[in-house]
């Protein structure tokens, strides 16, 4: 564990708390892509199957359980508790275009032909693109509530912090995980556009609005 990864994980936790806080205080999940949230559940469940057979640390265990539980809770908030505020008509990204290629990539690039290894790879690839339905929705509506942009910024910060973490690990452990790093770089790249608007508008006190 190094500070980059630690603060990355904290940022990831923070993003989830921000999202839950947003839904509760506004009593609405408007502006949140249900599809992205479903993809996160799929990511966590397929990656953390190792909860059942391997022990890393208490930190690792608690975080994994939290990510699975909180992502399921968010689906519940969106589909049951605040269902009327969820508008599927603007959440139109075709998820099959993400899941299919990720499944193919996982079958080609993995660390061993075991179900758990292929699913682990799949979850890494899927996480890297899971935010796309959300970003697509943002693009379509052209604006976002400030709290929603804080959620995305925290999520993007988590991914960004993993990059110095890998550089640190490369020097301290002499190894780089090619699958995690490649997918991670792609994932961080997806946030660049968002970050630009976030830093130039939201953090200057303006509303998140995309040029028409």
């Amino acid at each position: 564990m190094n500070i980059f990864r630690f603060f990355g994980d904290i940022s990831h936790l923070a993003s989830i708390f921000i999202l839950i806080h947003k839904i509760h205080t506004s009593r609405s999940c408007r502006g949140i892509s249900f599809k992205t949230q479903v993809l996160y559940v799929a990511v966590f469940v397929t990656r953390y199957l190792d909860l059942l057979y391997s022990w890393v640390s208490l930190y690792n265990f608690v975080m994994k359980v939290f990510f699975i539980a909180s992502s399921c809770y968010i689906l519940y908030l969106m589909k049951v508790r605040f269902r009327p505020t969820n508008d599927p008509s603007i959440d139109t990204f075709r998820v099959e275009y993400l899941v299919g290629p990720c499944a193919v990539l996982a079958l080609i690039f993995n660390y061993g032909y075991a179900v758990t290894e292929v699913l682990w790879s799949f979850s890494i690839f899927l996480e890297s693109v899971a935010i796309l339905p959300q970003l697509f929705m943002l693009q379509r509506t052209g604006e976002a509530e400030t709290i929603t942009t804080h959620y995305l910024a925290a999520l993007g910060a988590y991914r960004t912090l993993y990059i110095p973490n890998w550089i640190y690990r490369y020097f301290s452990e002499g190894y780089v995980d090619p699958i995690a790093v490649t997918a991670g770089l792609v994932q961080t790249g997806l946030y660049l556009d968002f970050f630009y608007v976030y830093f130039t508008k939201v953090l200057q006190g303006q509303k998140f609005e995309l040029p028409a």
Partner: peptide, 10 residues
């Protein structure tokens, strides 16, 4: 193997 050690990442 290296990749096995790295499975400690979330």
């Amino acid at each position: 193997a290296g990749w096995d050690i790295w499975k400690d990442e979330l």
